[in-house]
Design a protein around this nucleic acid. Sequence first.
DNA 1: CATGCGATCCGCT
DNA 2: GCGGATCGCATGC
Length: 197
Amino acid sequence: MGEPICCPPGLYELPALELAPLLLNKVLVRAGRAGRIVEVEAYGGSEDPASHAARGPTARNRSMFGPPGRLYVYRIYGLHHCANVVSGPGEAPGAVLLRALVPLEGIDEIRQARGGCDDALLCSGPGRLCQALGLDMTFDGADLTTASSAVFLADDGTRPPPEPTATPRVGISRARDLPWRFVVPATPHLGPGTRVH
DNA sequence: CATGCGATCCGCT
DNA sequence: GCGGATCGCATGC
């Protein structure tokens, strides 16, 4: 494991379904706090009825229709945030929802941001990981491809799992049959609705 | 351990 | 008006 470096910009040119499993084991870095991505979900464009982008661009989802390698952040249920990595190719709509991290750096800051919950729940869940790293609407559209950004994605040399576990996505009402959720096999720290041991 | 519900916005129907 | 890519606490078995 060498010095953490940013993922190559070309990575994000992949469509969401291909990008999603490749983001497993990458590291999300934000102001001294960092965590390894262990659970993601792919969301597509008009072909994916569960995607925010299914019905075309709107004020909320505009980041999904922009350049790849940016963050798409939205507010859900009025009080939580969810963070996605915008995918490609080009400006084709799509994104990968970040659902769980294993905390790596800034644990004390993360604990503080999460209000002193159980350590297993620090970054386990899309809303929890946003709270843990302090990600809110001001990070919508942030560039993930450069270390000079307030939030970016790093590759510390850990490869994606060769055989990620694929399951249906969590918390959606449409297209529940598609196995577009990917997790690192045999990891703790996953989000709710998860039963991997 | 499983199920339920309240909190609290805003974009969309 | 409705309801959501959620969370945390409370209740009941």
